[in-house]
Amino acid sequence: MAFTNEQLERYSRHIILKEIGPKGQKKLMQARVLIIGAGGLGAPAALYLAAAGVGTIGIADADVVDLSNLQRQVIHSTADIGRPKVESARDSMLAINPEIDVHTYYEYITSENISGIIRDYDFILDGTDNFPAKFLINDACVLEEKPFSHAGIIRFEGQLMTYVPGEGPCYRCVFKEPPPKDLVPTCREAGVIGAVAGVIGCLQAMEAVKYITGAGDLLTGRLLTYDALKMQFRTIRLPRDSHCAVCSGERTIHAPFDYELPSCDLKNR
């Protein structure tokens, strides 16, 4: 596959980089990344991955664009209110880079469909806002041996970690079970600064680019935390849990499953 002059120009800032170069750009153009959640985290991640020329981007979200989303979900516009988020996200990505393929999944990701969907992708970004989904994505990625980026945001803070099969801990090594509903604050109740979503979502995109191109060190075995008020980034070393229910030799979870959906989330949809 040879670059066209247009591609050389579009991706020139990547190709000039020693760590990316022509080979890395070709890897990006052949890569398949799935973004689950077209919200605060998925929005910046999707824009940067599309701009980077990731050849195939899948985006999953069952929601429609709401006015309250626009403070941080920069892939959607005011004119998109009421449209499925995946459609609005697809249009924005293709407007930036018509060369890529975008696959939309306008549906909830559940234990029924997750394995079939992630199987088609090289790297998965968890941009969801709820713990049942985060555990589901973790379990499915571990079981399907797919690398993924976990991220969370609240108020002025964010966190990030990367799971690579066979390396480092998974999300369930760190957090055993989802917390009961309403005992841990969510963005809806506690608020979040839009730019924090941007920072953390971009870091997720960065991890995907690094995984695909092989550049640098991934955030495996480490949790990165960001405190915007103190303007501090920290990385905390994470051990593996040798008794982990999904990624250890003592595995008790052999198939993805759904935790009960909190009723208030359903009402708010």
Binding site: A62, I109, P132, Q159, F175, V192, A197
Partner: peptide, 14 residues
């Protein structure tokens, strides 16, 4: 000593 907190955020996917 480190304290690791649950953080949701992102999009209500389900």
């Amino acid at each position: 000593v480190e304290f690791l907190y649950f953080m949701g955020g992102g999009a209500a996917d389900r």
